[in-house]
Amino acid sequence: MPQETREKILQAAIALMSLKGYSATTTKEISQLAGVSEMTLFRKYKTKQEILDNLIEKYTSSFQAKKIFVENDLVYDLEVDLANVSRTYQTFMNENKKVVLLAYKESGTHDEISERLTANPRLMKKFLMDYLLEMKRRDKIIPDINIELTVLSFMTMNLGFFSSQFISVKKVAVVSVEAFIEHSVKIFARGLKK
């Protein structure tokens, strides 16, 4: 039961913060939405900052635990591996829309929030750079590419699709996630293969 109460508080907090922002959300509102007293909220979390810290920790640790970011799960087939990375990314971002919205909302106001939330893109960038370096070492991709720019292009492609789905509510891109992944990864891989 105590963990369930903590989770209710976190869910209420992210629901409110993603709409109103961190500063505009009060602990009283969080406790009301969570269905607990403010005293209970403060027994579980000492401050609103601690609630935010727990939300960010949960967000970053769940991304790190995703299976594709474990090297043993790679097959070293460019299309297969990049499609799996794209699927993992799109699924994760869709499951965490409210945290992403909070990061957008707080950008420029509470830069420490955005800074801490960049742990996931940094992890993905490192993973993909290591992966492409290994593919280059295995002589499976063209040798004369800038690995970092290639990774940033791939990440931007995925973020762009997520954003077009999330922000425009599918008014820009009316294709399925799977169709996007299949098509974009095939084109991307074609440009990299030897």
Score class of each variant (00 low, 15 high):
Lys171Gly: 00
Val100Ile: 14
Lys194Tyr: 08
Thr40Trp: 03
Ala34Phe: 02
Phe188Tyr: 14
Phe180Ile: 04
Ser107Trp: 04
Val151Pro: 01
Ile30Arg: 05
Asp130Asn: 15
Lys170Trp: 10
Asn94Thr: 08
Ala189Glu: 08
Ile68Asp: 03
Thr91Ala: 12
Thr118Phe: 03
Ile9Ala: 02
Ile141Arg: 06
Val80Trp: 11
Phe92Trp: 08
Phe69Arg: 05
Val36Met: 00
Val169Trp: 06
Leu192Asp: 08
Thr88Trp: 06
Ser61Met: 04
Glu7Gly: 00
Lys67Asn: 12
Ala65Thr: 05
Val99Met: 14
Phe127Met: 06
Ser18Thr: 04
Pro121Met: 03
Leu74Tyr: 04
Tyr89Gly: 06
Ser23Lys: 14
Asp139Leu: 10
Leu55Arg: 01
Leu74Ser: 07
Gly35Pro: 03
Gln90Glu: 10
Gly21Cys: 03
Asn146Pro: 08
Met157Cys: 10
Thr5Pro: 00
Ser164Glu: 12
Glu79Phe: 05
Phe154Met: 12
Lys46Tyr: 09
Glu115Gln: 11
Val80Met: 11
Tyr104Arg: 11
Ile51His: 04
Val169Ile: 08
Glu178Cys: 07
Phe92Val: 06
Glu112Ala: 09
Val100Glu: 02
Phe180Gly: 04
Ser168Cys: 07
Val172Cys: 12
Ser184Glu: 14
Lys170Tyr: 11
Glu4Trp: 01
Glu178Gln: 13
Leu149Lys: 12
Ala65Gln: 13
Leu133Phe: 11
Ser107Val: 06
Lys193Ile: 11
Ser168Thr: 13
Ile181Tyr: 04
Val75Trp: 05
Glu38Asn: 14
Lys66Gln: 15
Met155Phe: 05
Ile30Met: 05
Phe154Trp: 03
Phe63Asp: 00
Ala13Tyr: 01
Lys186Arg: 15
Lys136Phe: 10
Val36Asn: 01
Val70Thr: 14
Thr88Cys: 13
Ala173Met: 13
Leu19Ala: 14
Val100Pro: 00
Leu123Met: 08
Thr40Lys: 00
Ser61Glu: 12
Gln64Lys: 12
Glu29Gly: 02
Phe154Ile: 08
Lys46Ser: 15
Met129Glu: 13
Leu101Ala: 12
Val80Ser: 13
Lys193Arg: 15
Lys48Gly: 07
Glu182Trp: 09
Ser168Ile: 02
Phe161Ser: 00
Glu95Leu: 07
Leu128Ile: 08
Tyr22Ile: 02
Gln49Phe: 10
Arg87Trp: 08
Lys170Ile: 07
Tyr76Thr: 06
Met155Ile: 13
Asp111Arg: 02
Lys67Glu: 15
Tyr45Leu: 02
Phe154Cys: 06
Ser176Arg: 07
Lys170Cys: 06
Leu132Glu: 03
Lys170Val: 04
Lys97Gln: 13
Asn72Gln: 15
